[in-house]
Amino acid sequence: MSLAEITVHADTFYIAAQSVPEQHKYVFAYSIQIDNRSGQSVQLLRRHWLITDANGKQVEVDGEGVVGEQPKLAPGESYSYTSGAVLETPVGTMQGHYVMLDEQQQEFLVEIPLFRLAQPNILH
């Protein structure tokens, strides 16, 4: 399966009401959309994230599925979910990959492009 056939797009949001900058706690939400542009059904099995804050601190997160689900996407279908991350700095990045399963029961990786988490108006 071509990597270009499964695409991932992220939108991020700073959650000021849950953040406590004086305690180095910056809360972000991110919405992910996965599009299956291939000609076969696929299933998301696992995720791997690398979360990096502005101090260079890195946290790796591995787990089954996303938000408690292992969604199946038929050809042409999309799947969206929202989750969150807490950083010690007002800026950071996330990137990673999903482990997917195709109709031949073969696992393959789908890269999650790097995206930025940033408190509004902190970057010019």
Rank of each mutant, 00 (worst) to 15 (best):
Y98R: 01
T7F: 04
V99Y: 01
G96K: 05
E103T: 14
D53S: 06
G65R: 00
P120A: 09
F28P: 13
G84S: 14
V59I: 09
Q104F: 08
E77C: 02
D102Q: 09
N121M: 15
Q95N: 13
F28V: 12
M100S: 07
G63D: 02
M100A: 04
A54L: 10
Q119Y: 12
D102G: 04
Q40K: 11
H124L: 15
E107R: 13
P71V: 02
L3A: 11
I122T: 15
V67Y: 02
I15Q: 09
Q43G: 01
D62I: 06
Q95E: 12
T7L: 08
Q43I: 05
A74Y: 09
G65M: 00
N36Y: 04
P75D: 09
V86H: 07
Q104R: 13
K25G: 11
A4I: 08
G65T: 05
V99T: 14
Q106G: 01
N121K: 14
Y30H: 10
N121Y: 13
A4Q: 12
S38C: 06
T7D: 02
R37V: 01
D102W: 04
V59E: 09
G56N: 02
Q70F: 00
S2C: 06
N121I: 14
V61R: 12
L44P: 05
M100F: 04
L87E: 07
H48Y: 07
A17N: 08
H48C: 04
K25F: 14
N121D: 15
S31D: 13
P21S: 04
S83P: 05
V27K: 14
T93P: 04
E111A: 07
I6A: 03
V42Q: 00
F13I: 12
F115C: 06
P75F: 00
P113G: 04
Y98H: 09
E64V: 09
L73Y: 01
I15W: 01
I112G: 01
V91T: 14
P21A: 06
P90G: 13
V61K: 10
A85M: 13
S19D: 01
I112K: 00
R116W: 12
V66H: 01
P21C: 03
H48F: 03
Q33K: 12
I122E: 14
L3K: 13
E77V: 07
F13Q: 15
R116Y: 15
D53M: 00
T89P: 11
T12D: 05
H124V: 14
L45Y: 00
I15G: 10
E103I: 07
L109C: 07
D102I: 02
V91K: 12
Q23T: 09
E60H: 04
L109G: 03
T7Y: 03
R116N: 08
V99E: 07
V20L: 11
V8G: 02
